[in-house]
Simulated scan of single mutants.
Amino acid sequence: MTATKTDSVVTPAPTGSVEPPVADGIVVVDKPAGLTSHTVVARIRKLAGTRKVGHAGTLDPMATGVLVVGINRATRLLGHLQLADKSYDATILLGATTTTDDAEGTIVDTAAPTAVGAVTAEAIEAAVAGFRGEISQVPSKVSAIKVDGRRAYQRVRDGEEVALKARSVTVSRYDVTDVRPGVAAIEVDVTVDCSSGTYIRALARDLGAELGVGGHLTMLRRTRVGSFGMDTAHTLEELAEDFTWLPIAQVAGETFPRYDADAEQAAAIRTGRPLSGLKLEPGQTAMFDPSGVFLALYEPHGPVAKPTAVFVS
């Protein structure tokens, strides 16, 4: 799916006693700083007039940018979309470490100005290069990873010491876009393309550790999730004025190979029955009825096609 070629459906925001719109689709939100992803979902529930709203890929309150939100039937589609690859713009401050690996935490250590002054732009570039590709990364202690059934950040807030295991992630792009030296700290702007599960706070922490001066994240903006970028994102204020979403049929048709079923096949698909004699491409195919209604995702299993998810009853 190419987000830049997507046309959105626009419905005026509800006023007075008019019922708000109810849609089956995807809303791409430009999340503001200071709000949790859960709060954004609550706002979308109110605007869409439905409780069935979910999001893909949590953003910390400090972070801004792309948050992909599903409405009604599209909440189930989120798990099937290719949303693993993400892009970020970030600012790293070298010279201090914090309890949370970002600016919201308490500073626990600072480097001497002489040590910070000895860090050159060339040294930063060389250190960044070591974090490209498939790397082993220890997530931030205040991540949402569960430890014995409880979120790591909850355990940290309760005063517990949390030790998380390293995990393999892929950083396909890690570019330094600007370096701003200061007396006691250096600000480094970076652009990152990475796999799901990569913590940009951890990249900031580890870059500072590699350079021997400590580091933490001071700004984070997610610019892409899968094929959904800032070009299709809308602020909450914009959505309150014109509630804009991508219909589930459009998203499915542009994301997956499309199969237009005849009436008999559509009846079978609606009840999730296997279909024989179809030559579907490997992976999932979006199945539509003769009128263009998106019905289900099917995939080939030898001589038959079986459903992976049915979206109509």
Rank of each mutant, 00 (worst) to 15 (best):
A163H: 12
V171S: 09
A144E: 07
A144V: 07
A185V: 02
I186N: 05
V169I: 15
G197C: 14
V162E: 04
V183L: 10
I135V: 14
G182T: 10
V171Y: 05
D193V: 11
A204L: 06
S172M: 03
A121P: 09
K165I: 03
A166P: 12
A112I: 03
Y174G: 07
A204S: 08
Q154F: 06
A163V: 12
A184F: 00
D148A: 15
V116D: 07
I200F: 02
S140D: 03
V176D: 10
A115H: 09
F131E: 01
A115P: 05
V171T: 05
I135A: 15
A127K: 06
A185T: 10
T191C: 03
L164K: 00
G182F: 09
P181W: 06
E161P: 05
R167F: 07
D193E: 10
V142W: 02
E122S: 14
Q154N: 11
A202C: 08
V171P: 07
L164S: 09
T177G: 12
A112W: 03
A152C: 06
A163N: 12
V171G: 02
K146R: 13
V128A: 01
A166S: 13
A121R: 15
V192F: 05
T120V: 09
V176H: 07
V162F: 05
R173T: 14
E134V: 15
A127N: 06
S143P: 04
R150A: 13
V162Q: 06
R205H: 02
R205M: 00
A184T: 14
R201A: 01
G182R: 12
R201T: 00
V128N: 00
E187H: 13
S195W: 03
T177L: 11
C194W: 00
L164V: 08
D193W: 01
V119D: 06
R167A: 01
P113C: 02
A118S: 14
V171R: 11
V162M: 08
V142A: 03
A166R: 11
G149N: 13
A126T: 11
A123D: 14
T114V: 07
D189E: 13
V116S: 14
V190Y: 04
A118K: 13
V171A: 02
E122K: 15
P139F: 05
K165F: 01
G130W: 06
E134N: 13
F131P: 04
S172Y: 09
V169Q: 11
K165H: 07
I186W: 08
A185N: 13
A126H: 11
D175W: 10
A166T: 11
A184S: 10
A163P: 04
P139N: 08
V183A: 14
G133Q: 04
V176N: 12
Q154L: 10
D189V: 09
V142R: 05
E122Y: 04
G117F: 12
I124M: 04
G197K: 11
S172K: 07
Y174Q: 00
D158P: 09
D178R: 15
R155H: 03
I124Y: 10
G197D: 12
D158F: 08
V156F: 02
D189C: 11
G133S: 09
T170A: 13
V162N: 07
R132K: 15
Q154H: 11
E134M: 14
S195L: 01
S143L: 04
L164Y: 05
V169G: 10
E160A: 03
D178F: 01
A112N: 11
E125R: 15
E160Y: 06
R205G: 00
Y174L: 15
S172Q: 10
T170H: 10
V192C: 02
